[in-house]
Write a protein that binds this DNA or RNA. Structure first.
Length: 926
RNA sequence: GCGAGGGUAGCUAAGCUUGGCCAAAGGCGUCGGACUUAAGAUCCGAUCUCGAAGGAGUCCAUGGGUUCAAAUCCCAUCCCUCGCACCA
């Protein structure tokens, strides 16, 4: 007998599988599923494992159900991360070296070559394939590619030509976070500090000052009507600068910033802030006012000069109050300009006084500002003399008017500061020109995507809302980059197509990836792809025969049935890919469905390579075996839920597999005659098959495992208990073995393959027929009988435990016929509360009086406690309780070691006997 | 802040869509027993409280409400996770 040895099973199965999952078009109906391909810049951890094992289980399930299944894989190597990694390794950055050497276990000789970014992705692509294979993923590896293959680039060029032709690739200007030291835009991950900072658009209100202007930045241009003064920080040095030829008074920081925002700036001279105090400025909308000193003014915020609206801005109010308390500027009064529900005439005054703020540097002032800002924006209305419009409308109108008439400009600034690049340099806002966008804002395009979403299956259904919202919210997407790996942007060869934009329709590329390699890249003109994917004929197509084969393959596989990915990609990739599909492919080739995954935890904490909190997939496979890893990952949570990897739990999964293996090996050769309990076992099995199938149909891997493993295992426990002495069961067990192995084959394919062979079944279990439910084998009568027996045994056990006497005999006392009538009447009644009237219409019942009403109450109670199917069965088919207990007498006496008597409760002298109910006989222990 | 999801016994996790099968599945842990020279493994049993009869009491983030009946429906509050774009 072969011992349980997962490693041996793995080796055996791998040999048989070498080319088994290479999939070509056939007569069978297809099932095409794919996953977001990995970016191979590091080793796989168990979180990745689940991402690829879930689709594998589904692939194996449908393969067994007779579909032609395609599960392909490729590698996304586009983008900048590996560039950074290779640089860091090049300059011997300790943290990086440690990560790659110790955690990812890259041999020193290989690590040396990691100064070349392509070597990194090549190394880890191979490793990914090796580890994925060791997990038993049924992937067609002939279709593997990377996104920097010349052939793939040709495909991307074709895709982009289409997008361009329909006007979805556009050019424009765009404010970005920019590091002047790196001379590059910076993303969140490039930031040391300020990763939540957003770029905000300010209006510069231009105040006339001598021969120059003082620009003050504001989000609330409509409050110009309430300006009483300007603020200057007396402790800061300002500049007089020529901005586009016009003299502006701005902070030193502002001068630098404006240069990045399409202005030419020449600093003429410094002006100490103190020198500006008490000077006069004017604006047509508020007249002449003074510049006052205030410490809260930040020279690094926009222009470094602020206009003051003390009636509506808490900062302004407090600063002014502080000055006035010193006896200065007593003549300046806050000028209200709008009314907002819930506040008095001067909202800033109300809130500041209510909060008891005494100092302009109090951190709470920031909160108050936010509060008033949103209240006024949503509910505020300007006074009649200023037009009477709601604030949200007036704001836009005034800004427009100022730009048109009063020389206002736009300035971009962060909402929170500081924002610091990884290089240590301060990040600023720069307006990028020649920036290319994908026009996701296009209403028509959005509409097509929404419509397609309606036709798609989304798993779990809750994510639909999130998709809809994403489509709604999506703005234009900057789609080119200056650094990284990838395909050159066709309309500006100095730029590259950005990684999230070159990975949107590659699922179509998989269908031809193995064949297109035979054609040299330079022959792959857009016309070639037009033919393959869109069926568009044109003259001089090269290698027509091969193209035809590819066209056939595309038509066969496309559209894909399901795409799998983690939930964090909903707001970008998963939605992008629908955009691109609807823009390029006709309706019949558009995506059919998506399955969204949860995250992975390790011992309760989020898995993260950078924090070292990872468990490598390869180590897991070596330590526990591939089947164990698979079964654990599939069984611990449904795919869309977060799962938590804990070694001790994984270990118990391994024991379960071993128990399964041993069970099958013990049961397969048993040859006794089948009896009622075998009928029961096989009947129950039908239901487990049904439920497992439904669960997998719905991608519920956990639910499926509970049915297919625990459900059947529990039945077997009862079955063994019910066997008479010296019996190991019957030959019915063989059919259970065969079914059971197939049910678990998608989850634990290695062990299943081994057992399938032991059962002397033909071929690979990976391609065996998925079990189907046989209605003829379902026997409700016997199931009901066992149910009654199980419940009675449980009751006896719990009574025995409670009364602590050593029983000499046990009497099962059955309910009389009239109680069955009561039970049935109530069970059938649509309104259980009215059933008692129905019963009392019967003369013989009425004569029994209170006895009947009591029984009715008890029956109603019992009916509510029993599963509805059971109640139905009792009511429709009835139960011959006496026969059941007589037949099980031997079993019961064996179980409890005392003689059993089956009697009728009617006429019994035992006080307990009256408690007998249908399906709940009275139990008398003596 | 905005958007989405979630809070269930020592832990983990079903169930809540379609209120009564719910003291609430399964797993882990813990305790007891069997086996064993012992340990481990395995198997059996127990695991909210009370109870010498299968029952009762309290419970499913918190506080209200609807209902004969609520973990499940409604309202409010508190807490947690994820996404928010030039990044795979």
């Amino acid at each position: 007998m072969t011992r349980f040895d997962l490693t041996a099973f793995e080796q055996e199965a791998q040999e048989k599988w070498t080319h088994a999952f290479e999939s070509n078009p056939s007569d069978k109906e297809k099932y095409y599923l794919n996953v977001a391909y990995p970016y191979p810049s590091g080793a796989m951890h168990v979180g990745h494992g689940r991402t690829y094992i879930v689709p594998d289980v589904i692939a194996r399930f449908w393969r067994m159900r007779g579909r032609q299944v395609l599960y392909p894989m490729a590698f996304h190597v586009t983008g900048a991360p590996v560039i950074g990694i290779s640089k860091r390794i090049g300059r011997k950055d300790e943290k990086t070296i440690k990560l790659y050497k110790d955690l990812y276990k890259v041999p020193p000789a290989v690590l040396e070559k990691f100064t070349d970014p392509l070597t990194i992705v090549k190394h880890f692509s191979d490793e990914y394939q090796r580890v994925m294979t060791s997990c038993g993923l049924s992937i067609d590896w002939r279709r593997r590619f990377t996104t920097v293959d010349p052939t793939y680039s040709k495909f991307i060029e074709w895709q982009w030509k289409h997008l361009y032709d329909v006007g979805y690739v556009i050019k424009g200007a765009h404010p970005v976070r920019y590091c002047t030291f790196d001379d590059n835009p910076v993303g969140d991950h490039d930031l040391l500090e300020g990763d939540k900072a957003e770029v905000i658009k300010f209006t510069l209100v231009m105040f006339k000052f001598e021969d120059a202007v003082i620009p003050t930045a504001t989000l609330r241009p409509e409050t110009i009507h309430g300006v009483t003064n300007l603020w200057v920080n007396p402790k800061t040095t300002y500049t007089r600068s020529l901005v586009d030829g016009e003299p502006w008074i701005i902070s030193r920081e502002a001068a630098e910033k404006l240069q990045l925002q399409d202005h030419t700036v020449i600093i003429e001279k410094d002006i100490p802030g103190i020198d500006l105090v008490d000077k006069k400025v004017s604006h047509p909308l508020c007249g002449e006012i003074s510049i006052l000193p205030a410490d809260f003014v930040d020279p690094d915020m926009a222009t470094g000069m602020v206009m003051s609206v003390p009636a509506h801005a808490p900062f302004d109010y407090i600063a002014l109050r502080d000055l006035q308390q010193q006896g200065k500027y007593r003549n300046i009064k806050p000028i209200p300009l709008l009314r907002v529900e819930g506040y008095g005439e001067i909202p800033a005054k109300d809130t500041v006084e209510k909060a008891g703020i005494t100092n302009q540097l109090d951190p709470r002032v920031e909160q108050l500002t936010q509060e008033i800002y949103s209240a006024e924006f949503s509910k505020g209305k300007l006074f009649e003399k200023f037009g009477g419009k709601p604030v949200r409308i007036a704001r836009e109108d005034v800004a427009q008017e100022m730009i048109k008439k009063y020389g206002s400009a736009i300035m971009y600034e962060f909402d929170t500061r500081p924002v610091v690049c990884r290089c240590g340099n301060r990040v600023k806002v720069k307006i990028l020109h020649d920036q290319w966008f994908l026009k996701y804002s296009d209403p028509e395009w959005k509409k097509q995507v929404s419509n397609q979403l309606k036709d798609m299956a989304l798993v779990p259904p809750e994510v639909r809302i999130e998709f809809d919202r994403t489509v709604d919210w999506l703005k234009d997407w900057a789609c080119t980059r200056r650094v990284g790996l990838g395909t050159r942007f066709p309309w500006d060869k100095t730029q590259l197509i950005e990684p999230l934009s070159d990975s949107t329709i590659y699922m179509a590329y998989y269908t031809i990836a193995n064949k297109i390699r035979e054609i040299s890249p330079e022959k792959l003109t857009p016309e070639v792809f037009d033919y393959i994917f869109l069926g568009k004929e044109s003259s001089n197509l090269p290698e027509k025969k091969k193209l035809d084969a590819m066209r056939q393959e595309f038509i066969y596989w496309y559209p894909y049935n399901f795409r799998f990915s983690a939930k964090d990609l909903i707001s970008n990739h998963l939605t992008f890919q629908i955009f691109h599909h609807v823009a390029i492919f006709p309706k019949q080739y558009l995506p059919q469905g998506m399955v969204v995954f949860g995250m992975g935890l390790l011992n309760g904490a989020k898995m993260s390579s950078s924090k070292g909190n990872v468990f490598l997939l390869e180590d897991a496979v070596k330590e526990f075996g591939a089947d164990t890893v698979r079964m654990f990952l599939m069984g611990s949570a449904e795919p869309w839920q977060d799962f938590d990897w804990r070694n001790e739990l994984v270990l118990s999964t391994k024991k379960q597999i071993e128990r399964f293996y041993n069970s099958i090996r013990e049961m397969k050769d048993v040859g006794g005659e089948p009896r009622d309990i075998d009928t029961w076992l096989i009947s129950r099995l039908q239901e487990h098959v049904e439920r497992t199938t439904v669960a997998l149909d719905n991608f519920q891997t956990r639910q499926a495992l509970q049915e297919a493993y625990i459900g059947i295992d529990n039945d077997l426990k009862w079955y063994r208990r019910r066997l008479t002495e010296n019996s190991e069961g019957s030959r019915a067990l063989f059919s259970l073995c065969s079914t059971w192995v197939r049910l678990l084959a998608p989850f634990i394919p290695f062990t299943s393959e081994k057992l399938w062979q032991d059962l002397n079944e033909q071929g690979l279990v990976s391609f065996a027929d998925w079990p189907i439910t046989d209605q003829k084998l379902i026997n409700h009568r016997i199931e009901l009988a066992e149910e009654l027996l199980q419940r009675t045994v449980e009751d006896i056990e719990s009574i025995k435990k409670l009364i602590q006497i050593i029983p000499k005999s046990i009497i099962i006392s059955l309910a009389p016929e009239w109680k069955h009538e009561v039970f049935t009447t109530i069970a059938r009644a649509p309104d259980k509360n009215l059933a008692i009237r129905e019963i009392m219409k019967n003369d013989t019942m009425r004569k029994r009086g209170k006895e009947v009403t009591d029984a009715a109450k008890q029956c109603t109670n019992l009916i509510h406690r029993l599963p509805p199917q059971i109640v139905d069965l009792i009511a429709t088919e009835g139960v011959n309780e006496r026969a059941i207990f007589e037949q099980a007498k031997d079993f019961l006496e064996k179980e409890f070691g005392v003689p059993f008597h089956i009697t009728d409760s009617e006429g019994s002298s035992h006080t307990k006997a009256v408690t007998a109910l249908p399906f709940k006989p009275a139990i008398i222990i003596e």
